[in-house]
Design a protein around this nucleic acid. Structure first.
Lengths: 114, 114
DNA sequence: CTGTATCCCCAACGATACTG
DNA sequence: CAGTATCGTTGGGGATACAG
């Protein structure tokens, strides 16, 4: 249960209004989210592939992070027809694709400013 | 006291090795950090100015976040000579300046992909 | 294969009070 | 003016077990 008037919640809303930057950071700042987005972009677009790629992630965490970035419109789920049990693949949306170069910029920024 | 071998710590180190992206995100994903960096860039470069700009931030939190981004080489502290009590101003380093356009990109990304 | 349910734990946020 | 000390609280990460 969330307390809607805790200082914590109020500060979050303050920052959201203050600048879109915080909305963006909120989307990608889950511990594994940026890595997940990158991995999907690189073709690891199935649940078990992501698990293998991110060797230490546990199922509940992976599931939660996937659901969040799906809600935020970064990825969509797609059923692979005529598979049993049902196969699911994850695909980046346009919004998700347009995030990739920005993540690359961040990556390069660290490389060039150690 | 930190536990160096908790899963939490291990996963952080795994992600750091995995991709520079996570190092970068770790730097800017404190709740107020990106906002602080932006505010300093816009001339709010004193402790009390930042407090006014970020209306709800408390001193301990502001102090901690400033110290962290200072440690990470995003800002430097500079004493203003011949003031009493001692005035301190915060300045972006080159590394900090080069982060600004990336933050702007994130901002625009959200604006253009609502 | 792709998840969800449950519960635990701690790092980080925040409030209050105090300091050089 | 520019912080630090202390402590309470909580959101979200993680382990284990279970499910469609």
């Amino acid at each position: 249960m969330h307390k809607e008037n805790s200082s914590d919640a109020l500060n979050r809303r303050f920052l959201f209004k203050k600048c879109e930057l915080n909305t963006a950071l909120n989307i990608i700042s889950g511990r594994w989210k940026a890595q997940i987005i990158h991995s999907i972009h690189n073709g690891h677009n199935r649940f078990h592939l992501l698990q293998k790629e991110l060797t230490n992630i546990s199922e509940p965490v992976l599931g939660r992070q996937l659901k969040e970035i799906e809600t935020q419109g970064i990825i969509i789920k797609k059923e692979i027809p005529e598979t049993t049990p049902t196969g699911i693949e994850y695909l980046l949306t346009g919004k998700g694709e347009r995030l990739i170069p920005i993540l690359d910029n961040l990556c390069n920024w660290i490389k060039e400013n150690p």
